[in-house]
């Protein structure tokens, strides 16, 4: 009995070692969104290009909605922009923009200069909607399904590889759900 006790420190250490080894392959920086599975909250914010028009959750029409958080102070958004112009070719999705804590004139100039891929952009000057969906920077893209539930939050710029790996499988899944629901 006594000899087994002497081995306890060693055993504990082996367990610790296993944990640390596993830790080497994890990414402590990766941050899953807390809003996944929750409904997109309602909001009342002006439209970027026509601020007299107020928008709400119901205005984000579409079976699969992509909400892209962007701003002129966000450098990576520039790299992402050309891909956004590409992905809107997919008829299954509708792309909306969330202009997050930005200067309106700068944002309008930006869209004019780089083209506007969005159905429309929401002008969230104070960041109220951003806060409500747990945004912590730009660019971020949310996938919202036909029932208004947030399915995914991708933090970072979208490019071909990201689109193939992170978004297409989910879009396929949701389309299948929609088809099943309809039949």
């Amino acid at each position: 009995m006594k000899s087994i006790i002497r081995f306890i420190p060693l055993i504990l250490f082996v367990l610790l070692g296993a944990l640390l080894y596993r830790g080497l392959f994890l990414n402590p920086q990766a941050m899953p969104s807390a809003m996944i599975g929750k409904p997109l909250p309602d909001f009342e914010l002006p439209r970027l290009k026509a601020t007299e028009q107020m928008l709400g959750r119901d205005d984000l029409k579409g079976d699969i909605v992509l909400l892209n958080v962007w701003a002129t102070w966000c450098i990576q958004c520039k790299y992402e922009h050309p891909y956004l112009l590409d992905i809107i070719a997919d008829p299954r999705i509708k792309l909306y923009g969330l202009n997050f804590t930005d200067d309106r004139n700068a944002a309008l100039r930006w869209l004019k200069q780089y083209q506007d891929p969005y159905v429309f952009s929401i002008f969230d000057e104070q960041g109220a909607l951003g806060l409500d969906i747990g945004v912590f920077g730009a660019p971020e893209t949310f996938v919202i399904d036909h029932t208004g539930i947030i399915r995914k939050r991708f933090a970072g710029p979208i490019n071909d590889k990201v689109w193939q790996k992170e978004f297409l499988p989910l879009i396929d899944t949701i389309s299948a759900e929609i088809a099943q629901g309809a039949s």
């Binding site: 941050m31 899953p32 807390a34 809003m35 929750k38 806060l131 409500d132 969906i133 747990g134 912590f136």
Partner: peptide
């Protein structure tokens, strides 16, 4: 805060 950002 937790509803939006998680326990993190």
């Amino acid at each position: 805060m937790v509803y939006r950002y998680g326990d993190f």
